[in-house]
């Protein structure tokens, strides 16, 4: 440490910068290598092989953009993209709105706050597979919600989202929201607790209503919390897979397919690695297109507190 912390002043500029803190750099070398080899290397390998006609085994017979052409001419892929769009948009908005509303309610110094917090957070402790199966049963018309309500005497009650190709994605959305909202609520609650009590006092002195204070003052102050929540929700949306497999299996028909499922099924069931790689590259592209401008705006420009 002592060697590293006071380098001789007469050494040349370049090595000095490179060897500054060399122990820390040495310690992080395995992590850097892992990141480079596994993440960057794996991504590059996937993108490269998406230009080949690899079937079960990776082979290097180049076919240009054929795999991508086939991908975008496949109904199943288009349906998957649309489903992800609907699920993603609704999930993003509703999770934020519900999460924040719940957190704001809990923040009003209600009784049994920690009990409610546990109840709301509890679904997050369940895996997507358990969530999917539980909601498959709850939404089953023959012994789930519909039959219970009919049992109460409301004979014409119909609620069968999972068996209708037009509504199945909303059935998934219900399960996704039930599972994910609790975590976002907790993050929001932590953010609300971080707001100085004096802000509330000042707002009260100025005679601003509670809801207006939340919308105009508190939410802008919680910007970093919202960004954390946004990243968490977005990553959950992109990797949506296990919930679909457990709850609907992509059905009825192809009506609840998602891109991640397309990738897995074409890589392993159809034994067509090239097609699976092309689809996963497109998923990467969509993430990059959304993330890079946003990350640039957020972190690249002026520094924010």
């Amino acid at each position: 440490m002592t060697v590293a912390s006071d380098p001789p002043s007469h050494t040349a500029k370049r090595p000095r910068k490179l060897f500054k803190n060399w122990m820390a750099k040495l310690a992080s070398l395995p992590m850097i290598l892992t990141a480079l080899v596994v993440f960057v290397g794996g991504t590059a390998w996937t993108v490269t092989y998406s230009f080949t006609s690899s079937r079960m085994l990776p082979k290097t017979n180049w076919v240009g953009f054929d795999q991508y052409e086939r991908l975008w001419n496949t109904d199943r892929w288009i349906i998957s993209i649309k489903n992800l769009g609907i699920y993603g948009g609704c999930s993003m908005v509703l999770t934020l709105v519900l999460g924040f509303s719940l957190a704001a309610c809990l923040d009003r110094k209600i009784r049994f706050e920690s009990a409610f917090r546990s109840i709301f957070l509890y679904p997050f402790a369940l895996s997507f597979v358990v969530t999917g199966l539980a909601w498959q049963w709850i939404l089953n018309p023959d012994f789930g919600l519909q039959s219970v309500v009919r049992g109460w005497g409301w004979e014409s009650f119909t609620f069968n989202p999972l068996n209708d190709p037009n509504t199945v994605i909303y059935g998934l959305l219900i399960a996704g929201l039930w599972q994910g909202t609790g975590l976002i609520m907790c993050i929001m609650l932590a953010g609300l607790r971080g707001i100085d009590e004096d802000i509330w006092k000042a707002a009260r002195v100025d005679g601003i209503g509670t809801i207006k204070t939340y919308v105009m003052v508190i939410i802008p102050m919680m910007r970093p919390v919202f960004i954390t929540a946004l990243v968490l929700i977005a990553s959950g949306i992109i990797k949506l897979y296990d919930l679909v497999v457990a709850q609907t299996g992509g059905g009825p028909g192809l009506s609840s397919e998602v891109p991640a499922k397309y990738v897995i099924e074409y890589m392993f069931r159809a034994q067509n690695l090239g097609q699976g790689f092309a689809a996963s590259t497109m998923m990467l592209c969509s993430v990059v297109i959304i993330l890079i401008p946003w990350a640039y705006l957020e972190f690249g420009g002026k520094k924010r507190g």
């Binding site: 079937r55 079960m56 496949t74 059905g251 028909g253 074409y266 069931r269 159809a270 034994q271 067509n272």
Partner: peptide, 19 residues
């Protein structure tokens, strides 16, 4: 059929039977 073609036919059938 190769597994690839078989999967594509199954996808078409899944789509056809439910739409």
């Amino acid at each position: 059929f190769s597994a690839d073609t078989q999967t594509q036919i199954e996808d078409l059938m899944a789509q056809f039977w439910t739409s």
